Simulated scan of single mutants.
Amino acid sequence: MKTIFDQSVIERTIRRLSYEIIEKNKDLSLLTFLGIPTRGVTLAKRIQKNIEQIEGVLIPVEILNVSGYRDDDKKTEEKNLPDTNLDNRVCILVDDVLFTGRTVRAAMDAIIDLGRPSKVHLVVLVDRGHREFPIHANYVGKNLPTSILEKVYVHFMEDDGIEDVVLG
C-alpha cells in the first residue's frame, strides 16, 4: 500500500474544493449537497462545514443511496431516496473516488427522481480514470492515474478511525 494523501493533505484539499465551489456558485443558497454513502457523505459534510465557516451559509447535505439504481449490481431493487425536492436547485453530487462512472450514472438517475435541478455538478476527492461512461468531475481533489487492477482506499477519521488515501 502506498499513501497518496495524509491527513493534512486531505484537509488542505477539502478546503481548496470548498473554495472552488464557493467561487463557481454565486448564490450558495441554491446549493444542495448529495453525498454518496459512505465516504461521499463524510466529504460532503466536511465541505459543508468549511463553506459555513467561510461564508456563513449552511448548505443542506442529503444522503443519496444509489444502490437501487445500479445497472451492474442488482442486489438491491429498493430505491431509498431522501425526502427532498431538487427542483431548480444546484445539486453538488459528492463521492470519494471517481472510477468507471457507473455510480455517478446511477446517482443522476436518482436525482431525476427527486426533481429537476437547474444544474448537477460532481465533486470527488480522487479521480482515478478508467471511465465506462462519459462522466467528468467539476471539482477534483487529485487526478491519480491507476492501473485497472489497483484500488484506491479513502479513510476518514469519522468513518474509519484513521485518515488517509492509499493506493493498493
Rank of each mutant, 00 (worst) to 15 (best):
V124K: 04
V123E: 01
E132S: 07
E158G: 03
V140M: 09
V154H: 02
H155G: 08
K151Y: 08
H136K: 15
M157W: 10
L122V: 08
L144E: 02
L122M: 08
V120N: 12
V154N: 07
K142S: 09
D159M: 05
Y153V: 11
N143S: 13
V124Q: 05
E158T: 08
V124W: 07
V124D: 00
V140F: 07
E132H: 11
H121Q: 15
D159Q: 03
K142A: 09
D127E: 03
R131L: 06
T146L: 08
G141S: 04
I148R: 14
H130Y: 09
R131H: 11
I135A: 02
L125M: 11
E150C: 12
F156C: 06
P145G: 07
K142Q: 15
G141C: 09
R131Y: 11
E150R: 10
V120C: 08
E158H: 05
V154K: 06
P134R: 01
L144T: 10
H155T: 07
D159I: 06
V120I: 15
I135G: 00
R128W: 00
E132D: 14
V120Y: 08
F156Y: 14
D127I: 06
V123H: 00
V140K: 11
Y139E: 06
A137Y: 01
T146G: 12
R128V: 08
V124G: 03
H121P: 00
R128E: 01
E132T: 07
P145K: 13
L122P: 00
D127Q: 07
R131E: 07
I148P: 06
V154S: 01
H155C: 12
V126W: 03
H155M: 05
F133W: 11
D127P: 02
E132F: 04
F133D: 06
V126H: 01
R128F: 08
N138G: 13
H121M: 13
Y139R: 08
M157H: 10
V123Q: 00
V140E: 01
Y139W: 04
V152M: 10
Y139Q: 06
L144W: 08
D159A: 14
H121G: 12
V152D: 00
V140H: 05
K142R: 15
H121N: 15
P134A: 07
M157L: 15
S147Y: 12
L149I: 10
